[in-house]
Design a protein around this nucleic acid. Structure first.
Length: 627
RNA sequence: GGGGCUGUAGCUCAGUUGGACAGAGCAGCGGAUUUCUAAUCCGCCGGUCGGGGGUUCGAAUCCCUCCAGCCCUGCCA
């Protein structure tokens, strides 16, 4: 299969999807590949024109290659279509194709073939998704917060998208190295050092150092706000400041800068304090990661690379890749020198993040020999990564695929960068708390409505209820983010996110819970449907629609991986869950007309549940058995 | 000045890299429950795909141009 206009280096990762796929589309394309032999020098572009039908009335899949092939051959499209169909080995796979309109070939899978594949899928732990035959090693760089300050909403997308990609590639059989490139060496530590030396509360430090670190950071940030030094977090000033306040803020900012410089210069006291602070800072971010169920294989922050920076610059100079310019050391990437160069050492002798990122590339390439390094970072850094990758390739790292997996900003409902009412960044901890609390309220409300209506409502323990709140609240936050195309800015909206209807995590979780309820109610042991799946009957249109969605799992995961696009998975989940809800409504399972039909439908249910659980799991979202 | 991203229904967004009459959700309107969880299902309403030009049998998609918004652009990361 060809993937959409992928740049050459990306194929390093993607070509592994070509050979392993066994999903229906891939098999149909293989039949077309054979049938098209001899009709064109390179048949692949035409094979790629076989795709899922956009409209169910045109079948399951459609081939659009006859029209363009007819043009190059100077023949009539419908004749070419006829010719292709004549050579096509349909085998047991497809019903008789239909030629429609100008020369579309409409394809419909045979129901008995679908039924057989569903049984295969049920018997397979991986739900028919082949593990890569040639696993790639992929470093994924994501989240990367500055550790001295609270994680805020700006870290959300990177963390969630990066984690989803790590889970996806791992499931597809690749070797994934999730690496959290912490900002643990920057100016925020100067702020913390200044605050610690001047404002620390010994008592608080003893009893709860993590909280005290947080308080100190927030205090110094507040003091500096008038100078707009940490603008990124504090936001535009919510009010105007007096001359005194501005003077004081500048003084504090200067002091913080001095502390940072001393730390970087190796000042013994500051380095010792930094070593003391780090575990406390890490504990704070780990708390968030535990809550979000996000894991890393490595946490190599900027400080880890700091000792290598001098050597990197020397090597760049030795190899004539970098040169002195206006007192700084620069890499000119534009041969005409019209574009600004990337600086690897400032005129004051300090290194830049380009230096640190180059050191990182060297370390990762030497240590893990990866096929690809993915950087899940906000789109505003596109230029930096473009320059970084160009510099890295000049430096000799031209075999590894370097990819900036970029994404848009998180905006408030006013379409401006999301801020609290006070103008600061929304902290991730409080955002999670609010999501969980809102999920709890929502649950109570719906429960009350159901009781009012006389519905049967499951009796839950406090612990089970807590599980629902966590899964629904955090799932809502993650899903809302992942379901959007990465490229566009993302408008953060509680009401949309926690909506009970539409393309939300809750809808999938609910579909899953209702599904599991059938097995409880019927006292059905699911293991039978996995160990020796019963025959499947594809009769009702809702059954067939559901079956078709189930068979698209592998195709979906390959596309999501090839495009680094978790929203492909959420779109799939939405279609699958909709098909399931419709099936649930129209096709009685436990009270099906015959035992055979009941078994067949139970198998469809179990497969759906497993597929939903698998897909949500790849997005880092939990399912709940009862809600 | 240069570069990037975005513009599709009242709102939020899909749109499988050039295919069939442009699709969802929300909102609005109207239906469905003696049957497995109604956090559900079914239907209706709603579009100058930012404007204009071009390529093509065929364009939301490719090319040109203009408009609007956001972002980046040598010593912050």
């Amino acid at each position: 299969m060809r993937y959409r206009g992928a740049p050459y280096n990306r194929m390093i990762v993607q070509e592994s999807f070509d050979t392993d796929a066994m999903h229906p589309l891939s098999r149909i394309q293989q039949r077309f590949r054979d049938a098209l032999q001899g009709m064109a020098a390179d048949v692949e572009p035409y094979v790629a024109m076989v795709k899922p039908a956009q409209d169910a009335r045109h079948g399951d899949y459609q081939a659009n290659c006859a029209m363009s092939l007819a043009k190059t051959l100077g023949k009539k499209p419908r004749d070419i279509a006829q010719q292709i169909v004549g050579k096509l080995d349909l085998g047991d796979l497809l019903q008789a194709p239909e030629i429609a309109g100008p020369g579309f070939i409409n394809l419909r899978l045979r129901d008995d073939w679908i039924a057989a594949r569903l049984r295969d899928m049920a018997a397979d732990e991986r739900l028919g998704v082949a593990a890569a035959q040639a696993p790639r090693t992929i470093v994924i760089d994501f989240s990367s917060p500055n550790v001295a300050k609270p994680m805020h909403v700006g870290h959300l997308r990177s963390t969630i998208i990066g984690d989803a990609l790590a889970r996806l590639f791992r499931f597809l059989g690749h070797r994934v190295i999730a690496d959290n490139h912490l900002g643990d060496w920057g100016t925020q530590f100067g702020m913390l050092l200044h605050a610690f030396k001047n404002f620390r509360d010994e008592q608080a430090l003893k009893s709860d150092p993590v909280r005290e670190m947080l308080r100190l950071y927030l205090k110094v940030r507040e003091l500096m706000r008038a100078a707009e030094v940490d603008e990124d977090d504090a936001g535009p000033s919510a009010r105007t400041y007096s001359a005194d306040e501005i003077a004081q803020a500048r003084q504090v900012a200067d002091a913080a800068r001095t502390e940072t410089a001393r730390l970087h210069a190796g000042d013994a006291e500051n380095v010792a304090l930094w070593e003391q602070f780090m575990p406390w800072c890490l504990e704070e971010i780990d708390r968030i990661y535990r809550r979000l169920d996000v894991r890393f294989d490595h946490t190599h922050g900027e400080s880890f690379y700091n000792p290598m920076l001098d050597g990197v610059v020397r090597d760049l100079l030795d190899k004539k890749i970098a040169e002195e310019s206006q007192g700084a050391i620069a890499i000119f990437l534009d041969p005409e020198r019209k574009q600004p160069p990337a600086l690897v050492r400032k005129k004051d002798g300090a290194f830049t993040y380009t230096t640190s990122d180059l050191a990182t590339i060297r370390y990762r390439a030497d240590t893990w020999q990866p096929d690809a390094m993915l950087y899940v970072v906000d789109a505003r850094q596109a230029l930096h990564f473009k320059n970084l990758f160009t510099a890295a390739r000049k430096w000799g790292y031209d075999k590894v695929a370097l990819e900036h997996v970029s994404f848009g900003s998180v905006l408030g409902e006013d379409r401006k960068p999301l801020k609290t009412r006070e103008g600061g960044a929304v902290e991730l901890g409080s955002l999670i708390e609010e999501a969980v609390a809102r999920a709890g309220q929502m649950y109570e409300q719906i429960r009350a409505e159901r009781i009012e209506r006389g519905d049967e409502v499951p009796e839950l323990t406090a612990e089970e209820r807590k599980q629902i709140e966590e899964a629904v609240g955090i799932g809502a936050v993650k899903y809302a983010d992942l379901c959007q195309n990465r490229a566009t800015d993302y408008v953060f909206s509680w009401s949309k996110m926690l909506a009970m209807t539409g393309n939300t995590a809750t809808y999938m979780q609910y579909a899953y819970a209702r599904n599991r309820s059938i097995f409880r109610k019927g006292d059905v042991d699911v293991s039978r449907f996995r160990a020796s799946p019963p025959p499947v009957v594809v009769a009702h249109p809702a059954e067939r629609a559901l079956a078709m969605e189930l068979l698209r799992l592998e195709e979906t995961l390959h596309s999501a991986a090839a495009e680094y696009q978790p929203s492909d998975i959420t779109n799939y989940l939405w279609n699958l869950s909709k098909s399931y809800s419709s099936f649930f409504d129209k096709c009685p399972v436990l009270k099906a007309d015959t035992p055979e039909l009941r078994d067949s439908r139970l198998l469809l249910c179990d497969l759906t549940a497993r597929t939903i659980q698998q897909c949500l799991g790849l997005l880092g979202i939990r399912t709940i058995e009862m809600m």
